[in-house]
Design a protein around this nucleic acid. Structure first.
Length: 236
DNA sequence: TGCCAGGCCCTCTTTAGGGCCTT
């Protein structure tokens, strides 16, 4: 199917933003956990056999002041506000933030696979919009995996073979509760949701790695969520 | 002032409707 080489590092990411796509949102917080493929192929487990976060784990979390206001709902669920971010002296998603992101990704062994939940419809297009506005690029050959269609697809294939269960929730929180019989911690902070995403991935790691090897999409094929204001030039 | 997206999936579908999923 895909002729791209296997990703060497998987970068789990989550965005908190000023709203949903209908308001042309801006990123207010981004968190990324970079994990080498070997740590996903052989997940560490606790004494009960439950996957735990890999010991070798690079993290980057940045907060930034958006230029547009939060929707009431976005501010409510994230706990972020324009006033709070400005009070803490946070700059916007600017060249420095883009360079920091680029440097973080650049020190990981490539090729990279970005991983996000509902990423194809939310995180990846929004990140594309912000980077395009700055004329910034990601490392060459970066690909993207969305765990939402991946896990739905894996379960669908399995249920066809086993005539299994009915409709299930696939929100990140629902998946975590189903896999770990526990509440996710720090929901709707970017770092908390990345931690939850990584643990969900680890629960189905072998299947998701195989899915990524065959079906990950090129970052170059991710369209922006909306046209950024004053875009310098189209990005490759 | 109030409202706002959209691709995907499921089902008592397919000439459609409604819910999920992300903030």
């Amino acid at each position: 199917m895909s002729q791209a080489p296997q990703a060497e590092t998987f970068v789990f990411l989550d965005l908190e933003a000023t709203g949903l796509p209908n308001v042309d949102p801006e990123i207010a917080e981004i968190s990324l956990f970079a994990v080498h493929r070997s740590s996903l192929e052989h997940p560490e487990r606790d004494e009960a056999g439950v996957p735990v976060l890999p010991r070798v784990l690079d993290k980057l979390t940045l907060c930034m002041s958006p230029t547009r206001p939060f929707t009431a709902k976005a501010s409510e669920i994230t706990g972020l506000s324009s006033e709070g971010l400005a009070r803490c002296g946070k700059a916007g998603f600017d060249d420095t933030a883009a360079q920091t992101l680029r440097a973080f990704l650049g020190r990981q062994a490539g090729p990279l696979c970005l991983v996000a939940h509902n990423g194809f419809d939310y995180d990846f297009p929004l990140l594309r919009t912000e980077l395009q506005r700055l004329g910034a690029r990601l490392p060459a050959h970066t690909v993207c995996l969305d765990t939402l269609p991946a896990l739905r697809g894996l379960d669908r294939a399995h249920s066809h073979a086993t005539r299994a269960q009915g409709r299930k929730g696939y929100s990140l929180g629902s998946l975590f509760r189903r896999y770990f019989q526990a509440e996710p911690s720090a929901a709707h902070s970017a770092e908390g949701d990345v931690r939850t995403l990584l643990l969900v991935f680890l629960h189905r790691a072998a299947e998701l790695l195989a899915w990524a090897d065959g079906r990950a999409r090129s970052w170059a094929h991710i369209a922006p969520m909306y046209a950024p204001p004053e875009a310098p030039s189209p990005e490759a």
